[in-house]
Design a protein around this nucleic acid. Structure first.
Lengths: 192, 192
DNA sequence: AGAGTAACCAAGCAAGCGCTAGTGTAAATA
DNA sequence: TATTTACACTAGCGCTTGCTTGGTTACTCT
C-alpha cells in the first residue's frame, strides 16, 4: 500500500472516486466499480488506499482543504468593510461548492459514513472553515448590516448555501456569484 | 403480502424502519436489522412489504403526507396577512420536521434511493407541498415584506429550514417556533 | 548489471446480502 | 364445521461484498 498521501496518481483516483460517490452514494459504490472507473482491477485499488473508508476520507479531505484555501485567499485579497467581506465569503463558498462539487457533495451527504478516527481528524478542518464564517458574520452584525442571533444566522446562511447543491444548475443563466449576491441581499435591508 | 397499505401493523413497522434508516442509512440497513427491530424474523417482513424499496417509499410517503396536512391546516387556521402567513408556514415546516423527524430526514437524504416509479409518485406529493410555499412567498414579496427573486428566495428559505435537521437540538433552549421566527426576522427588514 | 520499488493482475475467501419457498397456527368468515 | 385470511416461522439459494494473497511487469537509481 502507498503510505504517502501525496502521490499524483492517488489524487487522480480520489477525483474519480468523488464522482462515483456522488453518482451512486458511498455505500452503493463497490470497490469493483471504483477500480473499473480508474482503469485498474479491484485488487490494485488497495495498493493506493488502505481500505474503502480511506478513499472516502481522502475525497472529503481534498474538498475541505480547498474550501479553506479559497476562503482565506478571498478574504485576504479584500480588506474592505464587513458588507463586502460578507459577499466575498458567500461567493467563495459557492465557488468551491461548484468547482469541487463532487468532493463537497460527498462531504455534505456522506460524512456520517466516516469512521470515528477520520471523522475526528476532518472535523478540525471543517471547524477551521466555519470559524472564518463566524468572524465574517460577527463583523456584519456589529456593523448593523444584518440582525439576529450570530449562531442562528450563520447556520441559516450556511444551510441556504449548502442546499444549493440540490437544485442549482451551473449551466443555467445564473452564475454562482449572482446566487451569492442574491442571498446577501435577501438578509440585508434594501439600500435606503 | 399485505396488499392494503393502511394496516396499523404496517404503520408501526414503517415508523421503526424510519428510525433505523436515519440511524444507519438506507443502504446499510439490512432486512435482518429491520426485522429484529420489529421483533420478527427477516422472512416475515415480506408479508408486509413487497421488498425493501417499498419500505423506503412507505416511510417517505408517511412523512410527506403529514407535512402537507399540517401546512394546509396551519394556513387555513390563519387567514391573516402575508407576514403572519410567512411566519406560520415556517413554523409549520419546523413542526413537522421535528415531530416526524425520522421520516423527514429519510425523505431529505435518501430520496435518491427510491426507484423511478416510487419517486415519480412521491414527487407529486412533494410538489404539492412546495406549491404552498411558493404562494406564501409570492404574497410576501408582493406586500413588499421581503425582496428578491421569488424562485431563489423560496429555495434559500427551504434550504435554511431543511438544514436545521443537521444541527438543531430539540432538547436545547430554543423551540422550533423560535427558530422559525428568527429566520423570518432575518429576511425581513427590522420593524421601523 | 543488479537492486529496489511502484503499480498492477488473476484468483478467490469468508461474510453478508435481498429475497423465496414451503409450512404452522390462531383468529375471522362462510 | 369447513375455509379462508393474516401473520409468523425455518431454511437456504444465488449472488455480491470488501478485502487478501501471491505473483508479475516496468521503471529508476546506483
Amino acid at each position: 500500500m502507498n503510505v504517502m498521501n501525496a502521490s499524483p496518481r492517488r489524487k487522480e483516483l480520489t477525483r474519480l472516486a468523488a464522482q462515483l460517490f456522488v453518482q451512486e452514494g458511498f455505500d452503493r459504490t463497490t470497490v469493483r466499480m471504483l477500480a473499473q472507473e480508474m482503469g485498474i482491477k479491484s485488487g490494485s485499488l488497495f495498493h493506493h488506499f488502505k481500505d474503502k473508508q480511506e478513499i472516502l476520507a481522502a475525497v472529503i479531505e481534498e474538498g475541505t482543504q480547498n474550501a479553506l484555501v479559497i476562503a482565506r485567499k478571498a478574504l485576504d485579497e479584500c480588506a474592505s468593510g464587513p458588507e463586502v467581506r460578507l459577499r466575498v465569503m458567500a461567493r467563495a463558498h459557492l465557488e468551491t461548492l461548484f468547482t469541487d462539487r463532487n468532493a463537497h457533495v460527498v462531504a455534505l451527504f456522506e460524512w456520517r459514513r466516516l469512521d470515528p478516527d477520520a471523522s475526528a481528524h476532518l472535523s478540525h478542518l471543517r471547524d477551521a472553515y466555519e470559524a472564518l464564517w463566524v468572524t465574517v458574520i460577527d463583523d456584519a452584525l456589529e456593523a448593523g448590516l444584518i440582525h439576529g442571533d450570530r449562531f442562528l444566522v450563520s447556520r441559516f446562511v450556511l444551510g441556504a448555501l449548502n442546499w444549493t447543491v440540490r437544485w442549482y444548475d451551473p449551466n443555467g443563466p445564473r452564475s454562482p456569484d449572482d446566487l451569492a449576491d442574491e442571498l446577501v441581499a435577501m438578509i440585508m435591508p434594501p439600500p435606503a
